[in-house]
């Protein structure tokens, strides 16, 4: 592992029932936006959960900031922001929820949090449980980004967002990576958005890595990411 790598995966095997994810080797350095793509059931969420320390691995190793995220959740998640569309949150009013969460991050940036709340147009008076799916997604994005994490892990962030929401999400992601020390991992079915922001790709299919590398190299100039994925048989 390179000392500067934010994520280092070696010989990873994760089993979920009959499903098996295998990632022989994968690294993410600082200042990268990595798009993780593949059809439903390819293992995208499983991989991101393993990186975020939410799921143990059955073989191999995952290192985030040089630490095992499963064994060191406090240290890793103090600098890793994880967002998933169906992530459970406490059913509190949004402003109380954000206040509660802020106490767990020494690096919480109140001004940034307020800016993100305004940017994503979240009604802080509502309870988290009363938000629509899109509003809930935006809330989870704020929670993941407001403490300025070194590594931002987004699992299907655009699934419930409308066009303006996706645009604001992309703006926020690009702001994150203006800091050369920070990186973003994003899995999404909205391939157009992935193509716009991701400089590297990890393509999964049926639990296997079928392509990994720079987006421009993998996709080429004369086709879109969607066409490339169809050509690889990973649609």
């Amino acid at each position: 592992m390179d000392a500067t790598d934010l994520v280092d995966v070696q010989g990873l095997v994760v089993r979920r029932g009959a499903f098996r994810l295998e990632v022989p080797a994968w690294r993410v350095g600082p200042g990268q936006v990595v798009g993780i793509v593949g059809p439903n059931g390819a293992g995208k969420t499983t991989l991101l959960e393993a990186v975020a320390g939410l799921r143990p691995v059955d073989a191999g190793s995952v290192r985030v900031f040089g630490l095992d995220p499963w064994a060191h959740p406090v240290e890793v998640r103090s600098a890793l922001g994880f967002m998933s569309d169906d992530m459970a949150v406490f059913d509190l009013r949004v402003e109380r929820l954000l206040r509660m969460v802020s106490g767990y991050y020494p690096s919480w940036d109140g001004a940034l949090a307020r800016e993100l709340v305004a940017r994503f147009a979240i009604d802080t008076r509502k309870k988290a449980g009363a938000l629509s799916r899109g509003e809930g997604t935006r809330l989870r994005l704020v929670m993941a980004m407001a403490f300025r994490p070194c590594l931002l892990v987004l699992d299907e962030p655009a699934a419930a967002l409308d066009l303006s929401g996706r645009r604001r999400l992309l703006e926020s992601v690009l702001e994150v990576v203006r800091d050369p020390q920070r990186s973003v991992l994003v899995s999404s079915h909205v391939l157009h958005d992935v193509e716009r922001v991701a400089d590297r790709l990890l393509v999964l299919h049926a639990g296997r890595v079928i392509h990994e590398g720079e987006t421009a190299t993998l996709v080429g100039e004369d086709r879109t990411l969607e066409e490339a994925i169809e050509a690889w048989g990973a649609a």
């Binding site: 402003e95 954000l98 206040r99 106490g103 767990y104 949090a113 009604d123 008076r125 509502k126």
Partner: peptide
């Protein structure tokens, strides 16, 4: 759901 009056969003020092 009932909507509560808006309050400035405050945070805690960790």
């Amino acid at each position: 759901e009932s909507v509560h009056p808006a309050r400035p969003v405050g945070f805690r020092r960790s």
